[in-house]
Amino acid sequence: MAGARAVMRVFGDAQSGNCYKVQLLLRQLGRPFEWVPVDVLKQETRKAEFLALNPAGQVPLVLWDDGRSLPESNAILLHLAEGTPLLPSDAWARAQVYRWLFWEQYQHEPTVAVARFIVHYLKNPPEQAERLAGLQLRAQRALRLMDEHLARQPFMAGGAYSVADIALYAYTHVAPQGGLPLDDYPALRAWLARVAAQPGHSRMGE
């Protein structure tokens, strides 16, 4: 049918925050999709059939039935949110969303997510202790920055919920699994509750 939206398949690991971002956005937008499970710990992203879809060997990956594919979680968020209230049309407001999406991938995800991986999935092996301590210290700085920012406004990019919140919520709401308790961040915890109250919300793995 002319003008019909292409059906999409989302390749992802249910325990990955980067994959969860995409799943959460699609649910909140009410967009139909097929979830294709890919187990990163079993190295399924390194198999030839997956590398043929994404040579970078990473999830998430969105594949449309017209042959187009898109990797990189935040690029996917921006594309899917285009034309919706979750991505502002105003240039300045949009720049604030970009700001936090870039910061999430450069400062937040490499510390909070990796600490979670070491503690929750690798079960905190002794040989990772020094690395973990450094990651947790940097992660605490990132969480503190978020807390201070959210003490001044309700959502990451200003007064409205956006894909910036989705991107940062993903690994923040499971940060305690990386040995990062959130007790000392009241504004951040209040923000987590606001995000969880959004229509279509679900926690990671649900």
Score class of each variant (00 low, 15 high):
Pro199Met: 09
Tyr121His: 08
Gly12Val: 01
Trp103Gln: 12
Ser202Pro: 00
Ala14Thr: 09
Pro176Trp: 12
Leu101Arg: 04
Ala190Asp: 15
Leu24Phe: 08
His149Leu: 13
Leu143Phe: 04
Ile76Gln: 01
Gln153His: 10
Leu143Trp: 02
Leu26Arg: 08
Gly30Leu: 04
Arg194Thr: 06
Asn124Arg: 07
Leu26Gln: 07
Leu87Ala: 14
Gly30Thr: 13
Leu182Cys: 07
Gln198Arg: 09
Val163Gly: 09
Thr84Asp: 12
Pro71Leu: 06
Leu180Lys: 14
Gln128Phe: 15
Gln177Trp: 15
Pro85Phe: 08
Lys21Val: 08
Arg68Leu: 02
Gly200Gln: 06
Val62Leu: 02
Thr172Asp: 03
Gly30Asp: 14
His201Ile: 09
Val7Gly: 05
Val119Ile: 03
Leu51His: 10
Gly3Met: 07
Arg194Leu: 04
Asn74Gln: 07
Pro154Leu: 02
Arg194Glu: 04
Ala14Asn: 04
Gly17Pro: 04
Phe155Leu: 02
Glu44Gly: 04
Glu206Ala: 15
Asn18Asp: 06
Gly17Gln: 03
Glu82Phe: 05
Met1Val: 14
Gln177Arg: 13
Leu150Thr: 10
Ala113Asn: 11
Asn18Lys: 14
Gln43Trp: 04
Asp183Met: 14
Val119Phe: 00
Phe117Gly: 11
Leu78Met: 07
Leu51Val: 05
Val7Tyr: 01
Leu180Pro: 00
Ser202Tyr: 05
Ala95Pro: 06
Trp100Met: 03
Ala175Phe: 00
Leu77Ser: 07
Ala2Met: 12
Val10Tyr: 07
Leu29Phe: 06
Ala91Asp: 10
Asp183Asn: 08
Pro37Tyr: 07
Met1Ser: 05
Val59Tyr: 11
